[in-house]
């Protein structure tokens, strides 16, 4: 599955947003837009990213930039995989 697809599933399952995950586009804002995505949920999403993608997210990378949009989160994950 593509990074987008896996990320969509992680957000779907972690935030319990069902079909709303399917309409996430690159420019869809995440932080400040998805009401489910508060600080506690962000930490669970990060744990999901680490587990599903086999990456390590450092504390100083948990910030608004990576989580600004769906597209920025995809870029963040792809950057960690290289």
């Amino acid at each position: 599955m593509s990074t987008q697809g896996t990320l969509r599933d992680i957000l779907r399952e972690t935030l319990d947003i069902g079909d709303r995950a399917d309409s996430l586009a690159d420019d869809t804002p995440l932080l400040g837009n998805l009401p489910e995505l508060d600080s506690m949920a962000v930490v669970e999403v990060v744990a999901g990213l680490e587990q599903q993608f086999g990456i390590t997210v450092y504390d100083d990378e948990v910030d608004a930039e990576a989580f600004a949009t769906f597209g920025s989160l995809v870029k963040f994950v792809e950057g960690k995989q290289q």
Binding site: L15, P35, E36
Partner: peptide
């Protein structure tokens, strides 16, 4: 497989 109910504001 469940959502992380302890981290979500809406009841799960």
């Amino acid at each position: 497989s469940t959502p992380p109910y302890w981290a979500l504001e809406k009841p799960v």
